[in-house]
Measured scan of single mutants.
Amino acid sequence: MASQGTKRSYEQMETDGERQNATEIRASVGKMIDGIGRFYIQMCTELKLSDYEGRLIQNSLTIERMVLSAFDERRNKYLEEHPSAGKDPKKTGGPIYKRVDRKWMRELVLYDKEEIRRIWRQANNGDDATAGLTHMMIWHSNLNDTTYQRTRALVRTGMDPRMCSLMQGSTLPRRSGAAGAAVKGVGTMVMELIRMIKRGINDRNFWRGENGRKTRSAYERMCNILKGKFQTAAQRAMMDQVRESRNPGNAEIEDLIFLARSALILRGSVAHKSCLPACVYGPAVASGYDFEKEGYSLVGIDPFKLLQNSQVYSLIRPNENPAHKSQLVWMACNSAAFEDLRVLSFIRGTKVSPRGKLSTRGVQIASNENMDAMESSTLELRSRYWAIRTRSGGNTNQQRASAGQISVQPAFSVQRNLPFDKPTIMAAFTGNTEGRTSDMRAEIIRMMEGAKPEEMSFQGRGVFELSDERAANPIVPSFDMSNEGSYFFGDNAEEYDN
């Protein structure tokens, strides 16, 4: 993207840094990872977990959730003011799984939030270390993106479920800051804005008074975040219109849905970061690795190297396929839920299948599930090659597409044709070009129609051997075009429920 120079890199967003050079960025990201790792080690000690239990991804998720809940100030305040039966607002906890007599047992633990905050700050040299908290939120978000298709949420806001490739980060909490905003897809931002506008339509006082002023500035800020994701002048001009509207209503909703559809071809720039579970960072720190000293990046080879040398386990339900569970977590670790499966298959070195073909449910185990038949197995999170994460949407291309997802959002900077089903997408653009945004709409449609099938995206960008740390010898991959490109292809993934 041309304006790259004016933006802070995501590592800076990730670490609240002012302008830093590459070495400083690597050190501050490393410091953040160190903090998460030290916190995780301490929690495993508190909970008396064995090494194996500490490497269980379900335990990692519970521990991450506990610290996120302990620092969720708004919710904590709300819980104190609106006490609900049987919930102690000062405590947080969740299921911890232990191996007892050759069987997995679930144990519900409860801790004072104050105590968890103390352990977290102690692991982070006394700081609140917001960057580390956001990092864990993005890992949870990436896992949700890989596990669930947001059909219901899309339909509720009037969008087409086939636009799911635009929904990265749709389950990120509001408090995820600049680093969170960077990884949100165009569809996620559109959905947040539509929800806001709908509230304004239904509630006369939404934009009024002292609160209304705050609401208005939040609305304009979200519009600017979305505008910054678009790469064409016409899309940005249309966002200006939406932002400046005196009284946002149905016309703005129409414009936003139009823009979301246009992003299936004229893709937005959305950041991709490899955020790993805390149970990967903990053992690495415990083994003596100093992330701050060595430096770390979320968008280069580092996460690949770390996963190459990590042992992570997962509980497996009786009829689940461990290899499929591994694929789910591998995609989440690489922030690749909406990437082209052919690119992923090449990088991973084994075939990556669409969601609907995987015999696996989510990673988390519900409290009512029976533990008797639970097994555990090693997650295979290694890769054959590594590639640089991208934040450009890439230019655009036609490809055989599917009944489910009709476009992709690249996660890796790797040369390819970008699949999208042009006739299906263009069919949504018939007729409606009147109104105050008509010239911009016409211009956007013209650009979409001009998108050429034979153009290559990320020209000359390749993948790298894991021994090639400096990215000196790019390998331009070859793809098996007979395979499906979309992950949520004609899909039956479970729906995400809060």
Rank of each mutant, 00 (worst) to 15 (best):
R106F: 10
P83Y: 14
N142P: 06
Q168E: 09
E11I: 08
E14K: 05
Q311H: 12
E469S: 04
S482M: 10
I197R: 13
N368T: 15
R267W: 12
F304P: 14
E369C: 11
P95W: 09
I194L: 03
Y10Q: 15
A411L: 09
T424G: 00
I96S: 06
H140C: 11
A131S: 15
M159F: 08
G394N: 08
E294D: 14
W207M: 07
E294F: 02
Q405M: 02
E252N: 11
L298E: 08
I253E: 10
R75T: 08
A373N: 01
A284R: 00
V343W: 12
K113I: 04
K184F: 10
M136W: 07
N473W: 05
I388R: 01
L256R: 05
N59C: 09
T232F: 07
K98Q: 04
N250D: 13
P410F: 05
Y78W: 01
S467E: 02
N321P: 08
G228C: 06
Q241L: 03
E484T: 03
S165T: 12
N498H: 00
L379S: 08
Q409Y: 00
I388F: 06
E443W: 10
E454F: 09
E434K: 04
S141E: 06
F420N: 00
D290R: 09
S9N: 15
P277V: 06
S310Y: 01
A129H: 00
A263C: 03
L315S: 02
K351D: 10
A373V: 03
P83V: 00
S486Y: 05
E294Y: 04
M105D: 02
P477L: 13
K184C: 13
N142S: 03
N319V: 00
S176T: 09
K325S: 06
G126N: 00
D127R: 00
G126Y: 08
N492Y: 15
K98W: 09
V270S: 12
V343E: 06
W104G: 08
A181W: 13
A2L: 10
V67C: 07
H140F: 11
W120S: 04
T92F: 14
G212R: 12
C275F: 04
R384K: 15
H272R: 12
S486V: 10
E220G: 13
G158I: 09
S84G: 05
I57T: 13
A278Y: 06
N76S: 04
D128P: 00
S69I: 06
F412V: 15
S377E: 13
T92C: 03
S9I: 01
G5F: 09
G349V: 04
Q168V: 13
Y296E: 12
M239V: 02
C223E: 12
K273D: 09
L418K: 06
K422G: 08
V67P: 13
Q415I: 12
K357Y: 11
K422T: 15
E380I: 08
A493M: 10
H82D: 01
R461Q: 14
N76V: 03
K98I: 01
K357H: 08
T92I: 15
G460E: 06
I116G: 01
G17Y: 09
M1V: 05
S60A: 00
R121C: 09
K98N: 06
A233I: 03
H82M: 04
F71I: 12
Y97H: 12
R65M: 10
A428C: 08
I63W: 06
A27M: 05
E107W: 09
S217Q: 02
D16H: 05
I201F: 12
R65V: 03
T390I: 03
S310K: 14
F458W: 03
E244F: 08
S245N: 12
E254V: 14
G93Y: 12
M189P: 04
L143N: 14
Q241E: 14
S402R: 15
A387D: 13
Q327D: 12
T433H: 14
F488Y: 12
Q42L: 06
G300L: 09
L276I: 12
K87H: 12
P477H: 05
A233E: 05
F488H: 11
M331C: 14
R236L: 09
A178R: 15
N483P: 12
K77H: 00
R208T: 03
G54K: 05
N124E: 03
R436Y: 10
A442N: 02
L143Y: 06
T45K: 09
L226E: 06
A123W: 05
K98A: 05
R470C: 08
F258Y: 06
S359K: 15
R174V: 10
S297I: 10
N250R: 03
M239K: 04
S269L: 13
V183Y: 07
G200W: 03
D439A: 12
A428Q: 00
K305I: 15
E380N: 10
A131H: 01
E465Q: 08
R317A: 15
G462Y: 03
G282F: 12
S28I: 04
M159Y: 03
M196F: 13
M196A: 00
R156G: 03
P248R: 14
M66Y: 10
V363L: 00
Q168Y: 10
F206M: 14
T390P: 13
S262L: 09
Q415G: 01
G187Y: 10
D421W: 00
K305Y: 04
Y385L: 00
Y78E: 12
N492L: 13
A260M: 10
R26T: 04
R102V: 03
A27Q: 00
L466H: 03
G169R: 06
R75D: 11
V329L: 05
T188H: 13
F304E: 04
T430H: 15
P277M: 10
A178I: 09
E339Y: 12
M137K: 14
P83G: 00
W386F: 15
E11M: 07
G5K: 09
K198W: 10
V312Q: 04
A451G: 13
T350P: 06
I116R: 12
I444F: 09
A2S: 07
G132C: 09
Q398S: 00
Q168C: 04
E80I: 03
E465A: 05
P248L: 03
A278G: 08
P410M: 05
T130L: 00
E465R: 02
T390K: 07
E465K: 12
D101K: 02
M222V: 09
G431W: 02
A428P: 01
R446P: 00
K90N: 01
V67H: 10
G17Q: 02
R74H: 00
S486T: 03
S217I: 13
S60D: 07
S50C: 00
A233T: 15
S262I: 10
R317C: 05
V183K: 09
I36N: 13
G169K: 05
H272Q: 13
Q122G: 00
N473G: 01
G185C: 14
R384M: 03
N76T: 02
A2V: 05
T62V: 04
K229R: 13
L328K: 03
S314Y: 08
I257S: 15
E14L: 00
N473S: 13
D480Q: 03
A284I: 07
E294W: 09
A401Q: 12
R261E: 12
P318F: 04
K103V: 15
V363C: 00
V242Y: 10
E80L: 00
R152C: 11
A129K: 00
S376I: 05
L56C: 00
M136V: 04
N473R: 00
G450Y: 09
I25T: 03
T23A: 01
L379A: 04
D72L: 03
N224V: 10
P423E: 00
T23L: 00
A332E: 05
Y385R: 00
L133A: 05
L193M: 03
A129N: 00
T378M: 00
R199H: 05
L381Q: 05
R38V: 10
V270D: 05
S262H: 13
Q231W: 09
T45Y: 09
F230S: 04
A271T: 02
E495S: 00
K422L: 00
R121N: 03
G54C: 08
F420W: 07
A233W: 12
A323H: 01
L328C: 10
Q20C: 07
I138K: 07
N432I: 01
E18G: 13
Q122K: 01
M1Q: 10
F258L: 07
F429R: 05
I301S: 06
F412C: 02
V363A: 14
G177W: 10
V414G: 03
F304L: 09
T424R: 00
W386M: 04
L341C: 06
S335P: 15
